[in-house]
Write a protein that binds this DNA or RNA. Structure first.
Lengths: 244, 244
DNA sequence: CATTTCATGCTTGTATACTAGGGTACTATG
DNA sequence: CATAGTACCCTAGTATACAAGCATGAAATG
């Protein structure tokens, strides 16, 4: 049963404060889509930690819309395995399931490696310069301590391999699995690993530019393997967030 | 329009006849989930061919529920890329998008091969006997010309590798991509390929039983490559189902 | 004081009403 | 006859109302 995992049992106060879903509504777009994006962003960024109550009523009152678009956003987030709904009891941000993290990491690695193998076959100077530009901007974001931008550029970098392989649709699949493990990455972001990320990205591009396909694959695999290595320490520090 | 006063139900050319969604409702389960399953089955089996109108009103009248659960089912099917919604115009069964078929096939192959590599490492006699039992039942289904059962057992067979690899959660990812290409498989089911499917399944198991991991991978890749080879002829025969 | 019972307020699930926009067929006008 | 306008109906998007299940706690009973 989803007993509240609230780190603060004494926090009787409406945790509406945690609901800083700063939505600036664009009336031309669907409300449900905008709610979905705002909630997903808040969950993945751990602004809404695992176990948080996602009451349809609270949210729709908070942002000033009816329950229907909120419900539709929640349905999509359940599909993403980021929210769990218990009928007649409540909806909650899903805990980080270790088996799911393991399996999604496995899938993501398999897909990205397969994509990279194909991208390497048609790698060009244009692809290289575009990717290096992304890495440069990522370094700038790190210097400016703009971590949201850093993560956004990280996605752009990995996506660029899908573009080079002319398999851009595969990226959406990777992204779905990435979203299911990204909360772990956010937890590990404080460990000072970010400079290494930039170096590893550059190393992959070096191998691609040298037409060293196998080397690029090895370096990407190494890069992707870094996150799980520190999983145990993370579990210890944030035990409340995990299950299994 | 030539509106006759007589309101004969049969006077309508409504393709309601195509909506043979025989749902026997289980009141204990959510209506929306049951509608989702029924619609998905009808779409994947081509009972609702690409381009069919999925009017929320028609469907909810047809099965006797309100629009809400139908809407929620449609939302999930949009996520599956099986339905396209055009606001203020209508919702329709998505056409088979060639680029998406190509990319989902790529992803599925990458994932299944990665899973099989791990399954081979822990392959046992028990895994083998279970899988061979599935193939046997598949042969029986083919003999009985029970193609629905055949396809269900086909899924079970491929899933068994995920079970053996202890990556059962990966199956749901594979299944999502499989659903996006399964309509093509249904079109090709008439080509008399089904006996070959059984033989190829057996060949994979033979390699696994012989601890020939690379051989098993090659045979699975061959097996998965069979569907796309006949894609061009299918496009010719059912041109209006495809785009791109 | 302990235990049972019931009232109340929460939750999500479902039904229905309303809004705004697009498509089409008919009509009026030139 | 041709064309432009208009009215109607259909669509999905959103809002609101109602139903049913669960949790909590207070009150009544032993």
């Amino acid at each position: 049963m989803p007993v509240e995992i609230g780190a603060e049992p004494e926090a009787e106060v409406e945790d509406d404060s945690a609901l800083q879903l700063h939505i600036k509504f664009d009336p031309r777009r669907q409300v449900s889509a905008q709610v979905y994006e705002a909630l997903k962003k808040a969950i993945v960024s751990l602004q809404l930690p695992p176990g948080s109550s996602i009451s349809e009523n609270r949210i729709c009152r908070h942002i000033g819309v009816s329950r229907t678009p909120v419900r539709e956003a929640i349905i999509r987030l359940v599909e993403d395995e980021l929210i769990e709904v218990f009928p007649q009891k409540g909806s909650f941000v899903a805990p980080i399931k270790l088996s799911a993290v393991r399996e999604n990491h496995f899938s993501r690695k398999a897909l990205e490696l397969a994509v990279l193998r194909r991208a390497a076959a048609s790698w060009s100077a244009l692809h290289s310069s575009r990717a290096r530009y992304i890495v440069d901007r990522q370094a700038a974001a790190l210097g400016a301590e703009d971590f949201d931008d850093f993560h956004a550029l990280d996605e752009t970098f990995h996506r660029s391999f899908c573009v080079a392989a002319e398999l851009e649709g595969v990226w959406s699949t990777i992204q779905t699995m990435k979203a299911r493990v990204d909360r772990v990455h956010r937890l590990s972001a404080v460990q000072g690993r970010l400079p290494k990320v930039i170096a590893e990205h550059g190393a992959i591009l070096d191998a691609l530019d040298a037409s060293d396909c196998e080397g690029a694959l090895a370096r990407l695999e190494y890069h992707l393997e870094q996150a799980p290595t520190m999983l145990e320490t993370l579990i210890g520090k944030h035990e409340k967030y995990f299950v299994d």
